[in-house]
């Protein structure tokens, strides 16, 4: 059944695989970008049909419901504006104090809204793609978040799309701070992450750590990728160590990444 040309073709495929697997990172990324371009019409079609469907739903919504929602939004807007006055005053005070202490001023976040277009077909990575890329000012390692907390970081920014490594993926380790005890550690994928993407481990806690279940984790700002203070998760389980240098806690992430449809990216 197998002829000489078949063996030759298979040999060429094996050679091609070896070449591709040994390509430099930049060349591999460019090739992936070019190959991913074949999916762009399908993604475009999908987003256009979603927008059309949303328009149809909006057009069919009863006026009474819309007015009720409008009233509710106006009230929330007023509350948030009042809170903003307070926060602005605190920010001004913070800036003044930083100036007096000769500390570097904090730059405000430039947030870009993005839509989740696809997820990783492999079961062993936690990544997804968004519809923002380098042409929208997105760069590698830009933090990605939603209102509930941290989502991940930009792993590979292409021209029109970007790949996001979610918290819990081996490519996204987050330096965190326990808000209650001010102890620091790193959130990494744990034994349960493959089963439940919301469960991760907090490692490198001090041996005499006083962390308890229910304590909150926020980004520590160490490492320079994630700004300080973004909620990451809650400690669910902690067992003190028996003479080890470090201890580990189990953490439930704030964001359920399997249900994400929209995210915010902090542009540099």
């Amino acid at each position: 059944m197998f002829r000489r040309q078949h063996y030759l073709a298979l040999g060429l495929i094996a050679l091609l695989a070896l070449v591709l697997l040994n390509l430099p990172q930049v060349a591999s990324s460019r090739l992936k970008l070019a190959l991913g371009g074949f999916f762009l019409p399908l993604f475009g079609l999908s987003s256009a049909s979603q927008a059309l469907g949303q328009k149809a739903v909006d057009a069919g919504a009863p006026r009474a419901v819309l007015l009720q929602e409008l009233n509710q939004l106006q009230r929330t807007n007023q509350q948030l504006r009042l809170q903003t006055f307070q926060l602005q005053e605190a920010a001004r005070e913070n800036a003044r104090l930083r100036q007096q202490l000769l500390w570097q001023q904090r730059t405000p976040w430039k947030l870009r809204h993005a839509r989740v277009t696809s997820r990783d077909p492999a079961n062993w990575w936690r990544t997804l793609q968004i519809d923002l890329g380098t042409r929208h000012g997105i760069t590698n390692d830009a933090p990605v978040l939603v209102a509930e907390g941290l989502v991940g970081r930009v792993q590979r920014a292409d021209y029109t799309h970007s790949q996001i490594a979610l918290v819990g993926d081996p490519a996204c380790r987050v330096a965190v701070l326990v808000q209650e005890t001010r102890e620091q550690g790193i959130v990494v994928p744990g034994a349960a992450t493959a089963n439940d993407p919301m469960m991760t481990d907090l490692v490198y806690l001090p041996a005499n750590s006083t962390v308890k279940a229910g304590h909150n984790l926020v980004t520590s700002g160490l490492g320079g990728v994630f700004p300080k203070g973004i909620p990451v998760g809650i400690v669910t389980e902690f067992q003190p160590s028996d003479g080890d240098l470090h201890t580990t806690a189990r953490v439930r992430l704030m964001v359920n990444t399997s249900r994400l449809e929209e995210v915010w990216v902090i542009a540099p």
């Binding site: 197998f2 495929i13 695989a17 992936k32 074949f38 990544t127 490594a165």
Partner: peptide, 28 residues
């Protein structure tokens, strides 16, 4: 190639496994 472009897997990772499976079934 298309599959690896959508994934965080290195490019070319699925080429050899698919070729191996395809060749075994085709020859038999």
């Amino acid at each position: 190639l298309w599959r690896d472009a959508l994934s965080a897997d290195p490019l070319g990772l699925s080429l050899l496994p698919l070729a191996a499976v395809g060749a075994v079934v085709y020859s038999n």
